[in-house]
Design a protein around this nucleic acid. Structure first.
Lengths: 216, 216
DNA sequence: CTTGACAACATACCGAGTAGTATGTCCTAC
DNA sequence: GTAGGACATACTACTCGGTATGTTGTCAAG
């Protein structure tokens, strides 16, 4: 019997991802050192560098995990029949819930996009980042399509589709900036927060109050 | 006649602030080195440390300059007579224009708030940051009051005032994330962008479409 | 016209930390 | 019992914030 916890390689890797996500969320990418993550893990750098080629590699893995969870969250609603507006609303709610419940990962996604906009450093990292951005673009395209469809069905009205998409996402993403879990909080509490974000976003996009609300 | 440009101390200080704001915007606080700023200035660290006690001191000065400009922007509308909704709309538009036109400084404000939420490092910096946050809170209180008044006059409807404020500010602040100046752009173009943000925010807060729009 | 005091920087350097590596060690599966 | 996966330990090379000191232009007093 050893003192250190025995781990399967799969589980060990995901534990690193989880802890890294928390560190990146709390201090940001640049200000988080590999030793910080290792300390939080109760281990040393060796363990991290055994699984990840570099600090950037670890960071991208965290961000990609976040995007994976987003896709998983909205997946069930992508091909829902019925009015585009209802589909959009379901997607938006699932997305916002993912923001709340995977907050740590989502902040890395956010920071990754920000780093990309600044222009990454090495060409290798640039490619990896570009892939993350492409992944994220294909995600936002799902919303763009739903947005366009809802507008054509007369349920939304806005001028510039690009700006509308930006504004909508920022409203839906906003919990990653201000949300923090309260003691004794339930899923309903989180749903309530998410619904307020979705209602704000849909009304902002010009949805009739009756459709933007959550009385379904 | 000397090779180096002669500068009054006032002008030199503001040039440092301007260049530092650009560096912080492009690479973020942590990833910007003092030498980066100095290089961009065409000088050395000595010049910066002559005016600012530390890197953090420089950063806070940039952020405070940003907040100063925000206060200056909304000042003319704070005590406007008439409906609260109209006052709120004017303030929101002025605020958003300030976001666009002082984008570099505003990103430092944003990052400063983010750093504060993570918990600052040294107690000295903590105080300075707390002052910045207090400055910013007193700013947002102006909007909170206008929001409350407009709701009481029946022009807005939302559940949680805190969340409503967060969502509104995020929509109005959003240009600092996605805006970048286009070649040959005019003030009208920027006003158009700002108006879309304001309309989105006000509609999101439950304003009637007729009041949220910009046909005044 | 000289002098010296001061502001406004530049130059050279130090100490602390950081990413990454090379190597060692334990433990398990076969 | 031995090969390899999963780490730990001990380094190296380098960057960055900050400081101590040097240099130059300016301007006022004598």
């Amino acid at each position: 019997m050893s003192i250190s916890t025995p781990r399967g390689s799969e589980e060990g890797l995901h534990e690193i991802l989880r802890v890294a996500a928390h560190c990146f969320m709390e201090r940001g990418y640049a200000e988080t050192s590999i030793d910080d993550v290792a300390r939080r893990l109760g281990s040393t750098k060796g363990r991290i560098y055994h699984f990840f080629a570099s600090k950037a590699d670890l960071f991208f893995a965290v961000a990609e995990e976040g995007m994976d969870r987003n896709f998983a969250a909205i997946g069930p609603y992508l091909d829902a029949a019925g009015r585009a507006m209802d589909r959009l609303k379901s997607m938006a709610l699932a997305h916002t819930m993912s923001m709340i419940e995977n907050r740590a990962y989502q902040r890395s996604v956010w920071e990754g996009v920000a780093i990309h906009l600044r222009g990454a450093t090495t060409p290798e990292q640039r490619d990896r980042l570009a892939a993350l951005i492409a992944y994220r673009d294909s995600y936002s395209d799902r919303f763009r399509a739903a947005l366009k469809a809802a507008k054509e069905e007369g349920d939304l009205q806005f001028k510039d589709a690009g700006i509308a998409l930006q504004l909508m996402f920022l409203a839906l993403n906003s919990p990653i900036f201000w949300y923090s879990p309260r003691h004794g909080e339930t899923v309903e509490d989180r749903l309530n927060l998410a619904q307020q974000c979705v209602e704000f976003a849909l009304r902002g996009l010009g949805a009739p109050a009756a459709m933007a609300g959550m009385t379904m």
